[in-house]
Amino acid sequence: MIHCYQFDGLNIVLDCYSGSIHMVDKVAYDMIRWYENLPAEEVISKAVEKHGISREDAEECIADIDDLKTAGKLYAPDKYEHLAKDFRKKNIKIKALCLHVAHTCNLNCSYCFASQGKYHGERAIMSYEVGKRAIDFLIENSGFHKNLDIDFFGGEPLMNWDVCKQLVAYGREQEKLHNKNIRFTLTTNGILLDDEVTEFCNKEMHNVVLSLDGRKEVNDRFRVDYAGHGSYDRIVPNFQKFVAKRGDKSYYMRGTFTHYNTDFLNDIKQMLDLGFNELSMEPVVTDPSSPSAITKEDLPVIFGQYEDLARLMVERYNEGRPFTFYHYMLDLTCGPCIYKRIAGCGSGTEYLAVTPWGDLYPCHQFVGDEAYRMGSIYEGVLNTELRDKFASCNAYSRPECKDCWAKLYCSGGCAANSYHASGDINGVYEMGCDIFRKRIECAIAVKLLTSGLEQPGNG
C-alpha cells in the first residue's frame, strides 16, 4: 500500500509496509500511482501523453520504480499482521504507571475530561503508603523491563507535592536494589509551581508538562479558578521562570484547542512569543455534545492550521530559530520498531493508571468508569478478560484500519478516544483519524523540507 500527497511543491510517496519515504518529481508521482493498478506499458504510454516526455525517459522511470519494488521499498507487502495477533499477550509485563496522586484541583476548567480532577468521584489524595505500594507493584510486575516510567498526574499533582517527593526518593532507592531505571514525569497547571518545585523537577523529573492554552483570552476562557478568575497572569510568569532554569531537560508547554479556537496556530505563536520552544497543542477530549467539542465542520480550518504550522516550523528552522511541536516529532532513521508501531501505547497491559486508593485502570482516561476497573495494586490485575481485550487492541484489530496508510504510525489510535466515540475500544474515532493523518502528512513534510536533501527536478 502506498500513499501519495503533495505539500508546498513537494511530491511525497509513502510506502506503508516498508516505512520508506520518497520525494519524487511530477512524472514519477503519476507513474508510481498508476503503476499500482496498471501494467507497465500502459503507464509508460500515459506518462508520454500527459507529460510530453520521451518513451525512453518513461521506460527509465519505470525501471527505477521496479528497482525500488525489488528492494522492498515500494508496494511492499504486509508481512506483519501475524505479529499483531499475540505480541502483547506473550509479553504482559508492566513498565509504566500513571499515579493519580491528587483527585482534586485548584483550577475549575469546564472542559476537563477528569471532571475538575475528581474523575466523577470524590476528592482524594494519594497517601505515601499507597504510592509506595504502587512502586513496589510496578517493580514486581516489570519482568525484563529495565526502563520504567512513573507519571505524577491528577487533578493537580502539586496539591500533593510532599508525597510526590517522598515517592521519588523511594523510587530512587528501589531502582538501585532492583537494577531498574525509573523515569519520573509530572503534569502541572502551574499555579503552585515555585522555585522549590522547579529545583526538584530539574533534578528528578525526566519530563514536565506545563498546561497553557496559548493566548490569554483563550486560556482564561476555560482555565479558571473556583472564583471564575483566569489563570494566565498567575501561571505564565511561573512557567517562564521554570523554563529559564530547565536547561536542556525535557518539558512541554501543552495546550488544548477547542471548537472556540480552531485558529490554534495563533496560540502556538503566543507560546513562542513568551519564550517557549517545546510545544504541544491537542484537540479537546470531551463529550461530542459539548459546545467546546471539535466538529466535522471545523476540520478544514484545523487542517489549514496544521499546514501553516508546518510552514512556520520550516521558516523558523531556516532562520535558525527552530521549535518543537510534539506531533511533528518523527525519528525516521532510528524510530520505533515494527512491534511498537503495531502495538501502540500499551494501555491496559504495560501501562496502567493508579487511583489515590490503589485501584488499577487501563489508563488515565478510563479512571472513574467502574466497568474498566482492572484490579488493584494489592491484588494485582484481576480482570484478565479486560486486559486481554486491550492486549488485542492494535493497528490490525479494526477492520476500518485495513486500508489506512497511516496505521503503522498511529498503531490503531487511542483506545479511550475510540471508546468515547463509539462505545467500544475497538471502535473508530473517525475525526481523530482524519486529524492524525493530516498531522503525519505535515510532520513528514517538515522532516523532508528541513532534511537538506536535494529535491528531484520537476521534469
Partner: peptide
C-alpha cells in the same frame, strides 16, 4: 535526471522505549 529521491528510514521488541500516549531506545544508545 533524478526523478526519485529515497529518504533514509528505518527498515521495518525490547520494550525499553518510553510509553507513548498526555527514538528507539536501542538504536539511540
Amino acid at each position: 535526471m533524478t526523478r526519485i529521491v529515497t529518504v533514509e528510514t528505518r527498515d521495518l521488541g525490547c520494550g525499553e522505549c518510553q510509553t507513548s500516549c498526555k527514538a528507539c531506545e536501542q538504536l539511540n544508545k
